[in-house]
Nucleic acid binder design. Structure first.
Lengths: 215, 215, 215, 215
DNA sequence: GATGAATGAGCGTTCATTCAT
DNA sequence: GATGAATGAACGCTCATTCAT
């Protein structure tokens, strides 16, 4: 019971923090404004979090814990490495595309310092990379992906491409559908930009939908 | 003469700022420490820059102005879209790979706020994207790149991949050679990750050198 | 209770401010010294006042609010315009004569800028002038004051005379009794400096041109 | 020759200072702005004045030196104490009424601190008071002024009345003619505010106690 | 004499955090 | 547990003054 009430208060603080961090940026954000928005006293924040920074870190950890599990699940449900990569990309863009404020916090505020980024990298990003790595390995075994691919590099490349799509989407201010971009990104990653040589008789390519906006 | 002395002082301030921003982060950086490192009085900073933030913005603008010109030059010197893309990637990684502190400032500190990022995006990144866009267009005309490529998306993808390589390199703390990664990144972008289908008789791929390090 | 503590703290800050402003002048006064003298932390000042200037303005407003009421009361208690004018003068000199530090703040520090003075003039001084104006009007009706007096000018003159007495007293450094001067000042104002001529058959007074505007 | 050029520069600095002090107030005034307005370099100011404060003090001293002499002259030219008092009042109001900026500096900026005021009081104001004192003494001898007048108090009263007229005029923002007020002020001082009683057989005046102190 | 670039001391104010209630 | 009044360390920036040219 007390547990429930506490959890509720903690959640309200985190939700308020997302809004405030997104709007003002981490440094300009005032703990007292988070408290006001969460409907608690300033001091109460410190019953649930060690410090202002701990709010940001907790935010990140809890959102990640939730989504990394879901991502693994979706990957497992897809069959074939290409489909699994598409699932990863879709999940990545869907999670951030559904909540612009959260996306701002993840794309901008979490990258305030090498300290934060190292932490981010050491925990969640390694999981992300190894998930992609496993998918690639499987693709290589099943023959759908080139066997000479440097796996870590591909993982970083995929993350980098998607990350840029998200950042671009945030800054564009436009409201086009972010997850829609998963398909063309993965398509580019899989097929590459190079024109097929004539000798290879290829069917005409399905045109990729023109992309809205941006950055 | 006076010109020289001023320029020298301004440059020393900017150089000191790179070091201090890289080490402490923009917010934690103290103007007085930049002054100390530059060998000038605190007040002197304000003869050359309007504010602390103006130091960061000027840093960015001046470094960009210098390198964007060089990049165009190198692109012009390369022949064929694939080689031009490689030139872009190499330039990107070389500039940041040569000066880790500058790279930290560009990868981390400049992304402190949506304000900064919007500025960055509106100026330099658009140039970057349109440069890549032109190269792709040329590649499509000359038949080396797929004609159905969404140009803006490819530009963003390339930037995102390289950006992630730089960030990864910074955070890894290791000292492998960043520009070396230009080739495999562009190779992946051009050829894609997908295995060639058997029907297409392809020569064995040159193995990409295993990538060092990290993140 | 909390009310008491707050009021007490606020009062202590104002009292400390009077001392510090009087001794150092408003500009040279340090907020941290006011805090130290009031026995609170620097930041506490800003729980009660918006800014350093707000301390000065509040000081003025609160002292005025208190004394203007008392002055009206004393005026009401006196009978006849001459006695009422004497009451005003006595009150004026008594209030400032009782607290030299407060007098310094009122005579010197509050006149730092046209901004402050305009504020002062617009609020309290208008009240002062209209109080005197009413008394003069009454005196004219009851026949104790000349009917051709320009009321506003007399009000300004009385204020100016008393104001100079206070300033003079402050700067003299001596400790004679300020309120004692109310009688001779009012006597001079009432009777004038001119010697009575024994047989003076006086021509009717030329009316003084009505005075434009003012303050 | 050099003398001439210097004097010109010095004068230009003082003229610029009047404008800047009047507009911004002494503390907010920037030495560099005075320099700019005077058409000289910042450093040049310090060839003519010891400090920012010295500009203000010099301003005051030089304007006073000029006008006090003129005032004495005008007093000498008038015959009879009442006319002499009128001459003083007219001079006072004319000098300040002719140059609103100078008036602002004298009424407001010069009263920034007890330091300044003590200086002002010790020099020029004593001259003012003794000039008035002599006139009163003469009036008493010639029988035009009451023989029981406390001379110093009358001098202060006259100054206070005129001072308030000037301040009032500055703050009113209106542009009525200041010197015009000399006559009614002196008339009030001479005749007093009391209505003449027709058949008043007056008892001899109770002497006012001699006033202590200074200024 | 004149310049103006350089100096560096100095301070109002904010706000994360604490702790008595 | 919850409160919110109180704390006090911390710092970007200004500007009167100097002095090398």
């Amino acid at each position: 019971m007390a547990r429930l009430r506490n959890d509720d208060k903690r959640r309200r603080i985190l939700q308020a923090a997302v809004k405030v961090f997104a709007r003002q940026g981490y440094f300009a954000a005032r703990v007292s404004e988070i408290a006001r928005k969460a409907g608690v006293a300033d001091g109460t924040i410190y019953l649930y979090f060690k410090s202002k920074q701990d709010i940001l870190v907790s935010l990140f950890d809890e959102v990640m814990a939730e989504h990394i599990a879901k991502a693994r699940h979706e990957v497992a449900a897809a069959s074939g490495a290409p489909a699994k990569l598409r699932a990863i990309a879709e999940h990545h863009l869907r999670v951030l595309g559904e909540n612009r404020e959260l996306a701002v916090v993840f794309q901008v505020e979490l990258r305030q310092s090498t300290k934060f980024m190292e932490r981010f990298t050491a925990s969640w990003l390694q999981d992300y990379f190894s998930l992609v790595g496993l998918v690639i390995e499987q693709g290589q075994r099943e023959g759908t992906l080139r066997s000479d691919l440097p796996r870590k590099l591909v993982a970083k490349a995929l993350f980098g491409m998607l990350d840029e799509m998200v950042t671009s989407w945030i800054l564009s201010g436009k409201d086009h559908d972010l997850p829609r971009m998963a398909a063309p990104v993965v398509d580019l990653l899989l097929r590459g930009a190079r024109a097929p040589s004539l000798a290879r008789a290829r069917p005409p390519l399905r045109a990729v939908a023109p992309l809205a906006g941006g950055r």
